[in-house]
Amino acid sequence: MTVDLEHLAGMYRQMLLIRRLEEEAARAYALGKIGGFLHLYIGQEAVAVGAVHALQPDDCVITTYRDHGLAIAKGMSARAMMAELYGKATGCSRGLGGSMHMFDVEHNMLGGYGIVGGHIPVAAGVAFASKYRGDGRVTLCFFGEGAVSIGGFHEGVSLAALWKLPIVFVCENNEYSMGTPLSRSMSVEDVSMKALGYGIDRDRFFVEDVVEVEQRIGEAVSRARSRSLPTLIEVRTYRFRGHSMSDPAKYRTQAELDEHKRRDPLHKAKDDLARDGYGEARLSALEASVEEEVADAVRFAEESPEPDASLLESTTYDGPFAA
């Protein structure tokens, strides 16, 4: 497989940026600067980064509460993410959404949603609008394997299949739904089999290489774009942290975690760059620029103003408040 080194370097940089931003977010959380729920994407970065590289800027993405990585991959700034986590007025959702609700409409990131499965029909609706208008856009909808048990998934996929909507359903199977392993939440081990009953295409693979993610999801994206056919893809991945900051993840062994960390796609991308001659100096420069961007985002978040209470009404209704 020949890979353009610049292209890989770009993906590595994004993955590293997401990882480092979230590590800083975890630190800020421990200091009480970030509140509420914080679901980290650490370990899964290659999914969002690879997938978004298969898209055009006009294409839409939508996901769950585990949304920082996708937002950054889709082009949202590190500053907007960190400021949102800090609840500041300069955050992507002006401090009103927080970690679970990152929205960046300019980059067609249509948000992170907190009710499992609730966004899946919504994603199908976005794809419906593309087909309705014939705008040629594709929608990517992300969710965990835990969402495959809820009605929203089935109704969303069923309608997308019936109406042949230009959408790719990306199930990020990180093996656990909170503390519940897949074996105790589904009657089959292969999540992609859920596509069979709806008569749509499916794919399934382990994420080891961000380039492969781009290619595999890219095939489904082309199917959606050229023939308006939906696909369900099960991407096997792993989260290195607990479900959220309050989860000590006692339901899995250290050995299991170590095994997955050994196959960290972030490290593979770096090793590939080094092996293929990207050059030590350029790699360090890339990493230094990520550190700078992360430090800048934290500084920006710290220094930004709090949102004003006057925002509450104007963001609730368009037009006069309808009490």
């Binding site: 509140g35 509420g36 609840g87 500041k88 959702s93 401090g95 009103l96 959404g97 927080g98 970690s99 609700h101 709090e306 949102p307 209470a309 925002l311 509450l312 009404e313 963001t315 609730t316 009490a323």
Partner: peptide
């Protein structure tokens, strides 16, 4: 609670 969806920001949440 105030007649708006709950905001994330801590101070605004306390206001609500």
């Amino acid at each position: 609670s105030l007649d708006v969806p709950m905001p994330y920001n801590r101070a605004l949440e306390e206001t609500c």
